[in-house]
Simulated scan of single mutants.
Amino acid sequence: MRRDVFQAIADPTRREIIHLLSQHPLHLNAVAEHFDISRPAVSKHIRILTECGLVTIRQQGRERQCIADLGKLKEVAEWATQYRAFWNKKFDALDAYLAKAQKPAKGKK
């Protein structure tokens, strides 16, 4: 099953794994040591990240090294960008409203 990058980042554990691996590649056991969940659960998260194209696995002897491939996150950034202008307008309107509400009315102290 091919998953998309949005499925990968939907889970906080997977987001933390992405963050860990963005710092430097880690062996699967080293990734698992950072979490209070079972190693099979971490392996499942890694499998999903691999299916989404955010992590690649390189076999090094008996160990499997997990390497972040963050290029797919560009898809998320592009998707979010389309909403940035919308939210900037909303925040600008809120700033203007608050500035107006904080000004004392003429003739009042």
Results as ranks from 00 to 15, higher is better:
1 M>P: 10
2 R>W: 06
2 R>K: 15
3 R>L: 15
3 R>E: 13
5 V>S: 03
5 V>Q: 03
6 F>D: 00
6 F>L: 01
7 Q>I: 01
8 A>Y: 08
8 A>R: 02
10 A>R: 11
11 D>A: 02
11 D>H: 12
11 D>S: 09
12 P>M: 02
14 R>P: 01
14 R>T: 00
15 R>I: 00
16 E>Q: 12
17 I>V: 11
17 I>D: 07
17 I>E: 11
18 I>S: 04
18 I>A: 08
18 I>K: 03
20 L>A: 07
21 L>S: 06
23 Q>K: 14
23 Q>T: 15
24 H>V: 08
25 P>Q: 11
25 P>D: 06
26 L>E: 09
27 H>K: 14
28 L>D: 05
28 L>C: 08
29 N>F: 11
29 N>Q: 09
30 A>F: 05
30 A>E: 13
31 V>P: 04
31 V>I: 05
31 V>L: 03
32 A>K: 11
33 E>S: 10
33 E>Q: 11
34 H>A: 15
35 F>K: 07
36 D>S: 13
36 D>W: 07
37 I>K: 14
37 I>V: 15
37 I>M: 14
38 S>T: 14
38 S>A: 11
38 S>I: 02
38 S>G: 13
39 R>S: 06
41 A>L: 07
42 V>A: 08
42 V>I: 14
43 S>R: 12
43 S>H: 08
44 K>G: 08
45 H>P: 06
45 H>L: 02
45 H>Y: 10
46 I>Y: 02
46 I>Q: 03
46 I>G: 02
46 I>L: 14
47 R>Y: 07
48 I>T: 15
49 L>N: 06
49 L>T: 02
50 T>I: 05
50 T>E: 15
51 E>F: 05
51 E>S: 09
51 E>H: 11
52 C>Y: 07
53 G>A: 04
56 T>Y: 09
57 I>T: 08
58 R>Y: 10
61 G>E: 05
63 E>M: 14
64 R>M: 11
65 Q>W: 07
65 Q>H: 04
66 C>G: 09
66 C>Y: 09
66 C>P: 05
67 I>F: 10
68 A>F: 12
69 D>I: 08
70 L>N: 04
72 K>C: 01
73 L>D: 01
73 L>K: 00
73 L>V: 00
74 K>P: 03
75 E>I: 01
75 E>Y: 01
77 A>Y: 05
77 A>R: 00
78 E>M: 10
79 W>S: 02
79 W>Y: 13
79 W>K: 01
79 W>P: 01
81 T>D: 07
81 T>I: 09
83 Y>E: 10
84 R>K: 10
84 R>L: 05
84 R>G: 01
86 F>S: 06
86 F>N: 04
87 W>R: 03
88 N>I: 10
89 K>W: 06
89 K>C: 03
89 K>R: 15
91 F>V: 14
92 D>T: 10
93 A>V: 06
94 L>N: 08
94 L>D: 09
99 A>M: 11
101 A>K: 15
102 Q>D: 09
102 Q>K: 10
104 P>G: 12
104 P>K: 12
105 A>Y: 11
105 A>R: 10
107 G>D: 11
107 G>W: 08
108 K>T: 12
108 K>A: 04
108 K>F: 07
109 K>F: 08
109 K>C: 08
109 K>N: 10
